[in-house]
Nucleic acid binder design. Structure first.
Lengths: 323, 323
DNA sequence: ATGAAAGCGCTAACAC
DNA sequence: GTGTTAGCGCTTTCAT
């Protein structure tokens, strides 16, 4: 900036004014400055700017895994909102590890992000307290923060969606409905299990429940165990996209079994039968979380918002198979 | 840092030493400083550090769209390498728009990223010249930079993979093989078309070629046009994952037609017939590009590297259907 | 309409 | 083993 000022024969401050589009510079002077900028290939040093102003115009996003389609969709939506607000997005994947989540958050905070959007892996967020007090805004998506922290949160109607799935299968004549969900420590998995259990009422049977990270072998083992029961399941409810895919793969080649999955996935309609799913909208969730965050950054105070997004069942065939 | 120094009864520089793990601080002093840090909830201001040191420990990644599984996989791999080097990742999606690509790159450069990994949308990268001269390192992935710019580049064997696909179909008795590819302006689409044409030789027929962004309606129209020809295609070669999915959707419910697609996708093995594809590895590409970049950041000079990653055909049924 | 000076929080260079 | 000083490039405040 000093070099530009020298080259244009003006003071540093005038260059600053031009670069920032501040008023009060003579058009001719401004033109001279702009020429010098082009000639020297100058571009403003954002670090210095941030240091001086205190605001970074950067948002941090912590998700589980960008390579998971659900979070990829959420990321893209967040990115769009962030860009629309002339900010930049730092993002990282926690891989479902609380330690990694905290590391990412702390790194982002050290970079003085203005706000954070977190899909938590852990359930203790007291470590965020100092940051919140320092003015960093935080919004949670997909899963709520751990106890003792109040912050804007956007969740899907997990229990309600699970209830819809179960009732749909009940209506199609099933009484033995298995639940194949992710690890019970994951909020969404627990909520969907709750919705499943509540909808089943007296039909609930713990032997028809398996909850752990979906892997081909364990999924196959769980299904074999359940099908070997006296009264085996006639229908399956899978707890998220990865579980659904794992189950479909484990069942491939066998006689089709009634199935409803939580989360839509590409090609669900092209399989035979088409896969009936409870659909949630990751982009919507991302957009809402980001908008919530920017509202706070704009100075909105008031109690934390808790938004629940509706989900809906899309029937494609697999959920309508008879027992 | 000043406050911490006061609280610990030491000089600023000593705090700096402790924070940065520099040697030459008495363990007892260091402990006192750490206690003060915890008590005050201090965390180093990275902007100031960057301003002073000149290095940001940040890498910028420009891709087409995080929500596309191919780029999501690439992103995740890049992220892992970046983290392993104690750096952070800024990322953005260009949405196949050259203007947006340039905007993102310039924003990243204003933030003084140490290096950039770019999946280019445009074909003119002369705008990068000043940045390169300023010392920013750049690596290209999936597509090469525009003419006149020499930089490390990682590409898949697009033409070779297309050749494999076509020869596979020829070996299964097909002589009329259509190509359904993305817009010809996209490097990978053009290369795959070239490989297709070369492998077909005298059998090449321009009426069996359609190249444009895959959309349900246009895909259906293209297929209808081709199937209405005197000598309609008996097999299809689709130019990328999105084209394959669009074609499968357009053909759903009809008699299965022989098909080989470029790019693998989730569930390709669960469709009936399984979808034969030419597989490339997005994570590998991301990892190689990132490693190349960090090698440059470590000071490696020497001529730009051009790496071509192999692809391989995975037969699953659809590519083995007879004419 | 333009400029001079102070200082954001840190690290590098050099004392002691 | 510890402290002092200068200055990274910018914005803010206040003068002119």
């Amino acid at each position: 900036m000093k070099d530009v000022a020298t080259a244009a024969g003006v003071a540093l401050k005038t260059v600053s004014r031009v670069v920032n589009g501040e008023p009060g510079v003579h058009p001719a002077t401004a033109e001279r400055v702009r020429a010098a900028i082009d000639r020297l290939g100058y571009s403003r040093n954002e670090s210095a700017r941030v240091l001086r102003r205190g605001r970074t115009a950067t948002i941090g996003l912590v998700i589980e895994d960008v390579a998971d389609p659900f979070y990829a969709g959420l990321s893209r939506a967040v990115e769009e909102v962030v860009i629309a607000h002339d900010c930049l997005l730092l993002s990282g994947s926690s891989g479902e590890e609380p330690g990694r989540e905290r590391e990412l958050v702390e790194t982002f905070c050290a970079r003085r992000v203005d706000g954070l959007i977190i899909v938590p892996a852990g359930d203790d967020h007291t470590y965020l307290r100092p940051e919140l007090e320092a003015g960093t805004k935080v919004a949670f998506a997909d899963r709520p923060p751990g106890a003792g922290l109040a912050a804007d949160t956007v969740l899907a109607d997990n229990a309600g969606g699970a209830g819809q799935a179960v009732r749909h299968l009940l209506e199609h004549g099933h009484h033995r409905i298995a639940f194949l969900g992710d690890a019970p420590g994951i909020f969404t998995a627990a909520e969907r299990h709750r919705g499943y259990r509540d909808a089943l009422g007296g039909l609930y049977d713990a032997r028809l429940v398996a909850m752990r990270p979906p892997a081909p072998e364990t999924m196959r083992a769980d299904l074999e165990r359940m099908f070997a029961l006296d009264r085996p399941p006639t229908a399956l409810f899978t707890g998220n996209g990865r579980c659904t895919v794992a189950a479909l793969r484990a069942l491939a080649g066998q006689r089709p079994v009634a199935l409803v999955g939580f989360d839509d996935f590409e090609l669900a309609d092209l399989l035979r039968p088409g896969v009936t799913v409870v659909v949630q909208d990751p982009a919507w969730m991302g957009r809402v979380a980001a908008e919530l965050l920017f509202r706070r950054l704009r100075g909105d105070v008031g109690p934390p918002e808790h938004i629940q997004l509706p989900v809906r069942l899309v029937a494609r065939g697999s959920g309508e198979l008879p027992p």
